[in-house]
Write a protein that binds this DNA or RNA. Structure first.
Length: 624
DNA sequence: ATTAGGG
DNA sequence: CCCTAAT
């Protein structure tokens, strides 16, 4: 299909190329692009055959390729509604269409806009003008929702009766069945299958009426594309993009999706047993097939007319689509369409993201007005899972309110309290370093919670173990001095008089860490701190590459200072907490020397010289 | 995002 | 350790 694809690309309206022209004529003209909705809802570019067919149709209809400079294949663009193709007749108004994605954008039509009279009011027995497009047209005729008489009546000459033969070559939709209103409920299985075929362009062997109805309904329903409008569907109401605001956190799931519209005819999707979801989300009952394509169209139109409030189904989520796809795959084999290269479903991503976000937001967000400093800081109850120690967050929070630490502490605590008792221990432990509860005890549950969270909220909880190793990592420390207690994080920050408070937590370097650092430098070279950090300090989340660098700098300084006097007083000085063993300093010096001379990359150098051990270094340092 | 340097 | 500038 590759070749075909290419051809089509060429033959189809060169949207991108005509952009300029389009923009100028956007006022009214419409450009269509041949596409077919694949079974799984993807938009598939029309095949060459399809285009040919359409061309014929166009000729019959005397459609004039208006916007298409390239006359090669005039198929695509027809000045007005008429020509269109596929089954997604209700496209969005030109103006809003994004040209960036011509392939996906597919067809567009004004028909749904002002051209189409208020269908609701019109009960006009007209026929669907959006000919060509099977699904929609038929949908229009089908009485899905309580509305009857769905019909299009576009003032502009619409070429009706132009069955969209454009679809896959093998697809011979029978629109006769779609004429007039149709009540799916009254159809026989066979009829439903016919309808299905007409709708999706492929046969189905499914005998389940309910299933068929649902699929057809959904397919049709979702044929309408809102993505191009400035409106979105929220809480079953169409609102202007931007005007919408997340109101009820609870309902977010339904409404928060800012791009509801993009439901590009994902029609074909098999609405197996999962389709309920859609209904649920839309607050519809399973049996109530509320939104008909017609309705959708109406909405589009109404939007322009009055920004009215129409109800619409929620755009399917990515997951939903995926599931449908899966079902589809298994439930029946797709015709040629499947082989046709499928264009990526445009809204797949956008679909997913909002949903995910919404999900995560779904969880009650605990915030509280912090009275600190009277500035009313809001402390959100973020994820319970923290990559780094809570105290870091803690500190960040404090930054907002330099003053009154205690207050902040309490606030934070209380916030966490809300999250649940289990984590409390951990929290306190880390934050306030009070609890004596062994981390291990609460760890497990915590992790579980995390996983759960991830599952539902899509949050990424990784490296949880990092927190753990913090206490364990140093176990192999040979030199471990008692003082190097990790736990002694002096979380208590020291408010600095002038520039706020800094240095909340000092993390005294342990000898072990120093050694690791030194070795890391030896291995990877000074300056490659991120490397060293990753490899040698993977277990020390609290040591950043910058820290390493700083420490190295200090070591360097120290080493140069001490070296001269090394002879007499190796470790005589008991100064601060971490008297760095002379040997180490020596090595630092050595390394510094080397690094200074040859470039840090001394994979060979390291092995050749000192890597073997401190003893060597000592010896060396001796004569250095 | 890393790195280097100053504070 | 923090912050900033340069990459």
């Amino acid at each position: 299909m590759e070749a075909n694809e290419a051809e089509i690309e060429d033959s189809v309206v060169p949207v991108t190329n005509t952009l300029g022209a389009l923009e100028k004529e956007i006022a009214d003209p419409v450009v269509y692009k041949l596409v077919r909705v694949d079974g799984d809802g993807r938009l598939v570019p029309a095949t060459h055959d399809e285009i040919m067919v359409v061309e014929d149709l166009l000729e019959d209809d005397k459609c004039e390729p208006k916007l298409v400079p390239d006359t090669r294949q005039t198929t695509e663009s027809c000045k007005t509604e008429g020509c269109l193709m596929e089954r997604n007749p209700f496209q969005a108004p030109e103006g809003k269409l994004e040209y960036e994605n011509p392939e996906v954008v597919a067809e567009k039509s004004n028909a749904s806009v002002d051209k189409v009279p208020d269908l609701e009011k019109i009960g006009a027995p007209e026929k669907v003008t959006v000919h060509g497009s099977a699904p929609c047209s038929e949908l229009s005729n089908i009485d899905l929702s309580g509305r009857t008489e769905i019909s299009f009546n576009s003032e502009d000459a619409l070429n009706e009766d132009t069955p969209s033969t454009s679809a896959s070559s093998s697809w011979k939709p029978d629109f006769s069945k779609l004429e007039g209103k149709i009540c799916l409920d009254n159809l026989t299985v066979k009829e439903l299958q016919e309808t299905f075929k007409a709708t999706f362009g492929r046969e189905t062997s499914v005998k389940d009426k309910q299933w068929l109805k649902r699929r057809i309904t959904m397919g049709l329903t979702n044929s309408c594309d809102f993505s191009c409008t400035t409106f979105i569907i929220r809480d079953n109401l169409v609102v202007r993009k931007g005007e919408e605001q997340i109101s009820h956190p609870v309902k977010v799931r339904i409404s928060a999706d800012p791009e509801v519209g993009v439901a590009h005819s994902y029609s074909g999707g098999s609405l197996g047993d999962h389709d309920n979801r859609v209904n649920d989300d839309a607050n519809f009952s399973g049996t109530d097939v509320p939104s008909s394509a017609f309705e959708s169209c109406n909405v589009t139109k109404d939007l322009y007319a009055e920004q009215g409030t129409a109800k619409r189904v929620r755009k399917p989520t990515k997951r939903y689509i995926e599931e449908l796809s899966e079902i589809e795959e298994t439930s029946e084999k797709l015709p040629s369409s499947d082989k046709v290269s499928r264009y990526r479903f445009p809204c797949t991503e956008s679909l997913m993201r909002p949903t995910t976000i919404v999900r995560s937001n779904a969880r009650p967000l605990f915030t509280r007005q912090d009275s600190l400093g009277g500035s009313g800081v809001q402390i959100p109850f973020v994820s319970r899972i923290r990559r780094s120690r809570p105290r870091e967050n803690f500190t960040s929070l404090l930054k907002l309110q330099p003053s009154d630490m205690d207050m902040a502490t309490r606030q934070v605590r209380s916030v966490f309290d809300v999250s649940g008792p289990q984590e409390d221990d951990k929290r306190n432990n880390d934050l306030i370093k009070t609890s004596s509860t062994p981390p291990g005890l609460t760890k497990q549950p915590l992790i579980a919670a995390c996983e759960k969270d991830e599952h539902y909220s899509g949050m990424r909880i990784v490296e949880l173990e990092n927190d753990m190793d913090e206490d364990n990592s140093d176990d192999n420390v040979e030199l471990s001095d008692g003082f190097e207690n990790n736990s002694d994080d002096n979380v208590i920050s020291v408010p600095t008089p002038k520039g706020g408070m800094r240095r909340k937590h000092h993390r005294p370097w342990t000898i072990d860490e120093v050694v690791k650092l030194v070795e890391g430098v030896a291995r990877y070279g000074a300056g490659r701190w991120s490397e060293i950090k990753r490899l040698a300090f993977a277990s020390c989340p609290y040591r950043t590459s910058v820290d390493l660098k700083d420490k190295w700098r200090n070591l360097l300084k120290a080493s140069f200072v001490q070296l001269p006097a090394e002879k007499g007083m190796l470790n005589s000085r008991k100064q601060a907490s971490v008297p760095i063993p002379a040997p180490i300093l020596s090595r630092v010096r050595e390394l510094a020397d080397m690094q200074g001379q040859f470039q840090p990359i001394l994979s060979t150098g390291k092995s050749s010289g000192h890597i073997s051990g401190r003893s060597v270094n000592e010896a060396r340092s001796g004569y250095l």
